[in-house]
Amino acid sequence: MQTGYRYALNHQYDVAIQFDGDGQHDVSYVKKLIEPILNDEKDFTIGSRFIENISGFKTSFSRRIGIKVLSFFIKFTSGFRLYDTTSGFRASNKAVIKEFANDYPIEYPEPITVVELLKKGYRVQELGVNMKERLKGHSSIHSWKEFYYMINVCFSILIVGLRRYK
């Protein structure tokens, strides 16, 4: 993932879009995501399934609980209420591209990077988008690994909360 951001930095891109390749995301929402960035209102935008609930996206009960817990931890450490904590549909401006090119977590980067950006004072916004069911492939988060994932991410968020930036 970081490779993409490094590439964007090397080619001096103004905006980078992160987009899942499994058919879950809808290209038509890219415009909505990059608009606040082009207007220089936000530094980083996240496509969310849970805002405006356009698609009526259904997720499993355990997944919903997991997302609620992560949402709570993010609110606790950064004061920002994020609804779709694991969304991989995101857009970043030049400054954020630089951050990600320099340092990007290897494991489960989505929730952790958002907290890092918030702690560093970047302007983040979550925007409602439509998401489809996966055409193929599984989420990298499932079954017995779910517990490990939750522990890892919750601890990581708390550690980011302990860091002092600026």
Binding site: D103, P105, I106, E107, Y148, I151, N152, F155, I159, R163
Partner: peptide
């Protein structure tokens, strides 16, 4: 361990074994 994590000297994956 928390100090090392905070300074990004070790990653969470390996820190969890110690924790």
């Amino acid at each position: 361990i928390v100090y090392l994590l905070r300074n990004k000297r070790i990653s969470m994956k390996y820190a969890l074994v110690w924790i």
